[in-house]
């Protein structure tokens, strides 16, 4: 445990001092301020628009951090043999990967919470000072917090995918490309299957549908973690759904982490 903490510690320090993270957070701050200027242009449901835009900046920044920072921190370790500095100590490769994952996870958490706080603060300022802006209907802090945590959980799943691909390919750019592709597929596959199954004007072969369903088993379903609609419309969240989705997310991360460890343990570092 001590070595995992040590590796996580240096990863957080390295991540927090990275210019990419600082740049992404600055862009997120500017986006939040920009939203304040465009929200009054909407005629109604400004509260929903504010929630949508706030979550969008969180998603965008989180995705950028996982892709540009998370992958870079691991792939450069392997490509440039920086990992040798760590595993030349009495540290197992398992502890290295877990420590690295925990370090990036904490960095992403800090970033997500910072952006969430920025969104809340700018929205509060907007509600107080801009007449056209109204708070979302039946707003609940609990639902907001759960939505943010789910957003974070989906980013952790993406990070697990990114770590697996980085260990498998060792190429930073290939890993980035594949991770973004999987993120897009994971966000749209559920809708695609629903349309293929239930769409009145859509006719697809059973083979194609089976293929889509098979991919859905492999690729994480990121859309299941998108709870912003509950915040935006003031709906109550079905807690059984929250529980089972969380179990799905955590299980997916654990399973993929085990496969990543298996791959990394067999990797030759030269």
């Amino acid at each position: 445990m001590k070595t995992i903490g040590l590796i996580a510690g240096i990863t957080i320090k390295e991540g927090m001092r990275n210019r990419a993270l600082q740049g992404i957070l600055t862009i997120a701050l500017l986006l939040c301020l920009f939203y304040l200027t465009i929200i009054p242009l909407f005629a109604f449901d400004t509260g929903k628009v504010a929630v949508d835009l706030g979550f969008s900046s969180m998603t965008l920044a989180g995705l950028a951090i996982v892709v540009f920072l998370g992958i870079a921190l691991l792939s450069r370790d392997i490509q440039q043999s920086t990992v040798c500095m760590i595993i030349s100590r009495p540290i197992s490769r398992t502890n290295y990967v877990i420590g690295k994952f925990c370090g990036v996870a904490v960095t992403v958490l800090i970033a997500v919470l910072s952006i969430a706080l920025l969104s809340v603060v700018t929205s509060s300022i907007g509600i107080h000072f801009i007449v056209e802006m109204t708070p979302p209907r039946n707003f609940s802090w609990t639902v907001l917090l759960v939505s943010i945590l789910f957003q974070y959980l989906s980013l952790l799943m993406l990070m697990a995918v990114a770590f697996f691909l980085t260990c498998l390919t060792t190429s930073e750019y290939l890993s980035m490309l594949l991770t973004v592709c999987i993120y897009i597929i994971g966000n749209s596959l559920e809708t695609l299957i629903a349309v293929a199954q239930e769409g009145d004007l859509v006719q697809v072969s059973n083979l194609y549908l089976t293929l889509l369903k098979t991919i859905a088993w492999l690729v994480p379903n990121f859309s299941a973690f998108d709870l912003k609609i509950y915040v935006a419309y003031g709906l109550s969240v079905p807690w059984s759904y929250v529980g089972w989705t969380a179990v799905y997310g955590i299980s997916y991360i654990a399973l993929l982490a085990m496969i990543t460890l298996w791959v990394f343990k067999r990797k030759e570092i030269t």
Partner: peptide, 23 residues
């Protein structure tokens, strides 16, 4: 190692603290 590579954002003190504690 030959041509050692490190975490560039860490200071020497932080790196050595990590190395010592990890050992």
């Amino acid at each position: 190692p030959e041509g050692p590579r490190f975490y560039e954002k860490l200071t020497a003190a932080e790196l050595l603290t990590f190395g010592g504690c990890a050992s």
